[in-house]
């Protein structure tokens, strides 16, 4: 099963760390990611720039409204995503519990949704894209 792991961080808390500590933390995280790749469990992922770099689009009164910043104004911000290949939720929990990133902030583990059926139905409605 595929699980998408959303890694949250407190941006300032991380930036305020002494350089040596910050580097050590990053090295640990990247080397764990390498391990996951070796085991075929890393199905993709990306770190994200900070919330100050974000733009949020929202449908409002019949048009798109653009705002600065992230959608949710919370202390903990989405710092990166990791797509994990695991047998089941317990396996995913085991793997992510050992990820050093969990010390920087919480991980939310979400099973990937299978929208294959939805896409097929939509294709039929649109006049058989594959036909």
């Amino acid at each position: 099963m595929k699980y998408i792991c959303l890694g949250y961080i407190e941006p300032n808390k991380f930036d305020d760390l002494p350089e040596a500590e910050r580097n050590a933390m990053m090295d640990e995280c990247f080397s764990y990611d390498d391990e996951l790749r070796k085991n075929g469990q890393f199905a993709g992922g990306h770190a994200l720039q900070g919330p100050q770099a974000a733009a949020t689009l929202r449908w409002q009164d019949g048009k798109v409204v653009i705002a600065d910043g992230p959608y949710a104004e919370t202390k903990e911000q989405l710092g990166g995503i990791l797509i994990l290949e695991a047998q089941d939720l317990n396996h995913a929990i085991q793997i992510m519990s050992k990820h050093p990133g969990v010390k920087a902030g919480p991980f939310e583990i979400r099973p990937a949704a299978d929208v294959g059926e939805m896409i097929r139905e939509s294709e039929q409605r649109r006049g058989g894209v594959n036909a």
Binding site: M1, Y3, Q87, D88, L89, N90, H91, A92, Q94, R110, P111
Partner: peptide, 14 residues
């Protein structure tokens, strides 16, 4: 069913 919680007893560590 949906999040794949397995039918198992946790390992000794867990």
């Amino acid at each position: 069913r949906e999040s794949g919680i397995p039918y198992q007893v946790p390992s000794v560590e867990e």
